[in-house]
Simulated assay, not measured.
Amino acid sequence: MLWVFSMAYWAFIGLSCVVFFAGAVVVWLVTLPFDRRRVALHLYSSAWASFYVYVNPLWRLRVTGRDLVPWHGSAVLVANHASLIDILGLFALFRPFKWVSKQEIFRVPLIGWNMRLNDYVPLVRGSGESIRRMMAHCDRLLAAGSPVLMFPEGRRTSDGELQPFKDGAFELAVRHQVPIVPIAVHGTRRALPRHGLVLRDHVDVHVEVLPPIAPQDDAATMKDLARKAIASALNAS
């Protein structure tokens, strides 16, 4: 039964994306002259993504600590990554951040096109040149006052354990002297594991924003503090 529901759910997402993307193009065209940071389009995209969580009867989503994510001013947001559902849950923050995402997603029809309209940041894993372009893109966004959200593990965990963090997010925070905002995402791996598309029965997804880490002069220290904060939150659940 769950297999049938899952296939129907993914088909519904595919079909409804056509309508949502048409709306995104309208929002982009209307707001482009005065919304340089594309805040309106991102909030529209947040509603688009969150819709798929809230209409799924198998999922319950809670967001706590949302007010710790800035509306105005730069910050680097870092979250653990266990499932594709992380992305839907993090959109439910409804704050004007920019995603860093693997470049393959930007090639997905409709969803990837919307990511380009939003000026999100593509990254090719393992490519030094792509990493340099990603960091330069993030530099521009942070200088313009847009928070940036990254998965510092680099890829989804395969066993549920928090993986080592990469340096990029923390180097950005040090360079721009902006806070790191750690975010612990609970329950998404149980909702949808890394391999497979069959949804699990009744899962409580919790996006928990943790207290910001003040900017410092040492990226390694910020990385260690952020990882400990997220690990502690995940272990407490």
Rank of each mutant, 00 (worst) to 15 (best):
G73K: 02
R116C: 00
L117P: 05
S83D: 08
R116P: 00
L93I: 08
S130F: 11
I85Q: 02
G73V: 02
P109A: 12
A82L: 14
V108Y: 02
L117H: 07
F97R: 00
V124A: 14
V63M: 07
V121M: 01
L84H: 12
V55R: 12
V100S: 01
G65R: 08
V108C: 01
D86C: 11
N56T: 04
D67R: 14
V76Y: 08
Y52C: 04
S127I: 09
L58M: 14
V100M: 06
V76K: 06
F97C: 04
G89Y: 03
P122M: 09
Y120K: 00
P122H: 09
V63S: 06
S83M: 10
G126A: 03
I105N: 10
P109D: 12
E104A: 14
R125E: 04
W59P: 01
V76I: 12
D67N: 12
K102E: 07
G112H: 06
A82K: 03
W71S: 13
D119Y: 11
D119W: 06
Y120L: 05
V76F: 07
Q103F: 00
N80P: 01
P109G: 12
V100W: 02
N80C: 01
I131E: 13
K102T: 09
Y52V: 06
G89D: 05
V100L: 03
M115F: 11
S83I: 09
W71E: 15
Y120W: 13
R133L: 13
R133I: 00
S74I: 03
S74G: 12
A92H: 05
T64D: 13
H81E: 10
A75S: 14
K102N: 10
A75G: 07
S130A: 14
I85S: 01
G89V: 08
S83A: 11
V53R: 01
N118R: 14
L110F: 15
L123A: 05
W59G: 02
V76W: 07
L93W: 05
G65A: 09
E129V: 14
N80T: 02
N114H: 13
R125I: 05
L84D: 08
R116H: 10
R60E: 12
L58G: 11
P57I: 11
A92D: 11
H81Y: 11
G73N: 02
F106D: 03
A75K: 04
R95V: 05
S130M: 10
I111R: 00
R132A: 15
L77W: 03
P96Q: 09
L93E: 04
P57C: 09
L93M: 08
V53Q: 01
G89P: 05
A79D: 07
L58C: 05
F94M: 12
F94Q: 11
M115D: 02
